[in-house]
Design a protein around this nucleic acid. Sequence first.
DNA 1: ACGATTTCCGGGAATGAGC
DNA 2: GCTCATTCCCGGAAATCGT
Lengths: 406, 406
Amino acid sequence: RCENLVDVYFQLQQQVMAASTELGPELLPRLLERFNEVLSSLVKSSFLVEKQPPQVLKTQTKFQASVRFLLGPRLLKAAPKPYVVRADMVTEKQARELELSNYSNTLSESTGEILHNMVALETNPTSGNCCANFKNVLLKKIKRCERKGSESVTEEKCAVLFSTNVTLTPSNVSIHLQVLSLPIVVIVHGNQDNNAKATVLWDNAFSDIDRVPFAVAERVPWDKMCDTLNLKFMAEVQTTKGLLKEHYFFLAQKIFNDHSASPEDFQSRHISWAQFNKEILPGRGFTFWQWFDGVLDLTKRCLKSYWSDRLIMGFISKQYVCKLLSMQPDGTFLLRFSDSEIGGITIAYVIRGKDGSSQVENIQPFSAKDLSIRSLGDRIRDLEQLRNLYPNIPKDQAFGSHYNSE
Amino acid sequence: RCENLVDVYFQLQQQVMAASTELGPELLPRLLERFNEVLSSLVKSSFLVEKQPPQVLKTQTKFQASVRFLLGPRLLKAAPKPYVVRADMVTEKQARELELSNYSNTLSESTGEILHNMVALETNPTSGNCCANFKNVLLKKIKRCERKGSESVTEEKCAVLFSTNVTLTPSNVSIHLQVLSLPIVVIVHGNQDNNAKATVLWDNAFSDIDRVPFAVAERVPWDKMCDTLNLKFMAEVQTTKGLLKEHYFFLAQKIFNDHSASPEDFQSRHISWAQFNKEILPGRGFTFWQWFDGVLDLTKRCLKSYWSDRLIMGFISKQYVCKLLSMQPDGTFLLRFSDSEIGGITIAYVIRGKDGSSQVENIQPFSAKDLSIRSLGDRIRDLEQLRNLYPNIPKDQAFGSHYNSE
DNA sequence: ACGATTTCCGGGAATGAGC
DNA sequence: GCTCATTCCCGGAAATCGT
């Protein structure tokens, strides 16, 4: 597709050249200059990141990336010595300056050394793709920017700048190609992964297509956030069963810390980045996202099939569960994610005395580690006091297919 | 002490110089040359490794070492710019060549890059020590030698060569100082630690003082081995209670795989390196040393106090235990190290029926991990069938001080 | 003193080398 | 296919930084 444009370009150029005598000495140079501009911008925009580096990037850990020069096969046919593409870390500020200069600047200082960052731009003879494949790249160390106030390192976005100089074959024009990766959060330890993922999620979900790098809204409509959380949940857990209205309502209550508003009230509200992953949930030791990510992780690792069978109510408050279960017969239970513990799921069940009194109990939440020792299904089978999954499915019917053979 | 020798040397030299005219033109040059030799050898032998690098050295892991130039304070008083000592890995072969050349050669090729291997030789003003302190050294990668046949990388010995050039102040003589560390086994992963420790233990215990680097006997008298194991055991476990005659007998039976010889027979035997840590014990998946080191580790980590109270028979065969216990009353037990499992301790006890029949049981051995969950003492308290520690100490009396509060 | 950030490194798992 | 050797990297613990 891109090649066609080049063909058109060259045809046009030839026609102009053929008609050069007729065009007169004033028009011709201006036309030729215009041609150069067009070619240059065409060529530059055909230099793309094919495989993005990981957006949460850990130092001292190998990663992969690749760039592709779409017009390479067309314009670099007789490359004498292979062109080399280099990859460099750039800060958000550097990226912004590059963008402003329309990618004509070259990079001054490095913000972190990348090992094996020079790779030949090669045209694969079979597929005809002109790529530079960074297979063994590793960020040695990151130089952090000066941060203002409460900003944490996991809110800091950088990018990888891929750049090379090529000489186009027919015209012998030398051209500097540069392209930026998507924004990247650099971490040095797994304990920063959570927060880095939040930054990336927020950026990917709420940034405009053509923004100044890497500006993104500070607050967004809650229903957009819901969509984002839902997509993230389904992608992460690998399930087709998404979040439901009631789940969103519960999540809204949690993130806004508002237990009086109605579902409709929340619809029109806005949620800020601070509420999402900076402010600690009241009475807890973690943020909304840290909690939600814990649920993602637990569900992905241990509860995928249960969730997909809709056996997990999950996103529901303890109080509401209490209300629901207290009207149910003895041994009715349901599953909800722990509010107090990251990555925990708990079983709530009702004990009903002969006199009709009812009491709702919550079992100490299970972590992914617990469930890897003995699965949720088996644990449910073990517990005699559990009879029916809310509203009233006999537990063996609901969970039978998840029991492991004794 | 060393300084005194230098003083004597200089006095002697001055006397000779004073008498120079009397000595005549033939004698004087020869005397002076002799003086130089003496000074040189004196100076060279005052360059020492103060703190040895770890003899089991893992790549990519920081370590420390230091060298000291005893005559530094005496002979380098007015050093204009600080002298730099460098540290390099050398193979056994290189070490041998250095030794042969009497440390006059310089190193040709490196066998592994050491990071931060250049350190200033500085005289501490308060203590007056002239040292180069390698605080932050790290072996990046090791180049292995070609190995013959069944040799494993953990049998390969190298060393660190410390070297520097200094100019002595009074005489202005320049001199090249070199000194080798003790032999070192380089590993790349913790799973090689065992075998590397075996090589080092064997080398430290059985090498001659002045040997060609790093020659060591291939077989040694068993009683020397016993001493070595005993010293190692006490050092490692940090106990004053060493191994006993019966323990040596059991170890001999195990390592020689000979269950008919008497303790005296073993006394005169020789044990080979292969028997120590190359040959797999019959029917087991490990060598003698691997097993013994497992015992060391377990005892050091979980059983120090029990061993020091002599509550652990430990090194005793299952068969012999059976014989001992079967003549004891019901519930008599003792503790022995597992033969089949590395780093395991098992409880053997006797069950005596009312008819006088007896049966000796062995409890599934406990590992260090098991014992860190619940200690040995508490486990013994838990087990109702255990009554008296062999020969006949009530268990609460023997182990009472090791019980943890409930 | 505390939380944030980073370094250090043991050890499981994957990969590669040699047979 | 196995064993030996190495690389890769998670995540606990400790050190260090910043305030």
